[in-house]
Design a binder for these strands. Structure first.
Lengths: 164, 164
DNA sequence: GTCCAACATTTTAAATTTAAAGTATCAAAG
DNA sequence: CTTTGATACTTTAAATTTAAAATGTTGGAC
């Protein structure tokens, strides 16, 4: 439907109108970058470790917290719904990668930890994952990194500040 | 599970280890920002227009291309699988918001356009959507906008450059 | 002690999403 | 003309995801 005299990348930003607000441009650029990286990571995790991004994320959060996390904490940190976390936990538990134990002083709460097997499994994936991310973002100089981080901090602060 | 002497935001970045590579930090920051914005937009589209982000995205791409887009083009631009686009197209077509017409010189190809109803419906949503995005990102000065865009351009270029 | 609202989690149903297989069409080679 | 491989799209099955309802638990208020 489009004449292409020049090669054009097609992605979220293709929907931009000339009169669109600068903020819309920034948002679509952000979305495009994130989606591009996410898709690559997803594909590689599937190809090389037969796992998914949310499962990896789940284990990464636990690896970071050796004392364990509750289901609610996992839900917050992974930024997904509670039901979602329940489902992933069932899988990982079934594969012996995590333990769920009752917390003595609150019978509503579960404490989730990586098993030894889970910790080992994650270590392999984490090393590869880091290589992939560095490969994708490593072009940027340390100074650029700092600058983008600063800007995204500001952006994040602005969004967080809004109520609801 | 965590003592919180200070208020800590919980999100993807919570999984960061002290020794993690700068690129991982940047990636998780990017993911957190995108998810935060995406969740807010998703919730508002549902509350105020009883629709979803992918449906909005679909219509936005079409609004941008008055001559229509093929299913394949939509798939590329929305950065989702072809089957996904088929499903959304069925919905929107059922609601009379889009038309799918055969292209005369290629019977495999469908050309998708917004109906008048679809165009009107989208105009309302787009106005609100722009307000929301500006509300979230508007804190940044025009100079900041330019800088972040520049950096994300570079980041995008780096990721695109990788094969596969 | 008894309610009652809040909380932590799971379950449910519906929608979304994906990868892969399937269908139909095309274009080009022989 | 026929075959072949590529293309455009849809269908399928499985997994993911979400919002909302359901379950069980807690900690006051009274």
């Amino acid at each position: 439907m489009d004449d292409k005299a020049t090669v054009v990348e097609l992605n979220h930003e293709s929907r931009l109108q000339s009169e669109d607000h600068q903020s819309i441009r920034l948002w679509l650029r952000l979305l495009t970058c994130t989606n591009m990286i996410e898709q690559r990571l997803r594909a590689r995790l599937r190809q090389e470790f037969a796992t998914t991004l949310p499962r990896f994320d789940f284990m990464a959060q636990l690896d970071r917290s050796p004392d364990g996390l509750t289901m609610g904490e996992l839900s917050q940190r992974m930024m997904v719904s509670g039901g979602n976390v329940s489902g992933i936990a069932n899988q990982l538990s079934g594969e012996g990668l995590i333990d769920r134990t009752q917390v003595p002083d609150n019978r509503r709460t579960l404490c989730v930890t990586l098993t030894d097997k889970g910790r080992k499994r994650f270590a392999d994936m984490a090393a590869a994952h880091e290589r992939w991310v560095v490969e994708m973002l490593g072009d940027l100089s340390p100074a650029d990194h700092r600058q983008i981080m600063m800007h995204l901090t500001q952006l994040k602060r602005g969004v967080t500040a809004l109520e609801t």
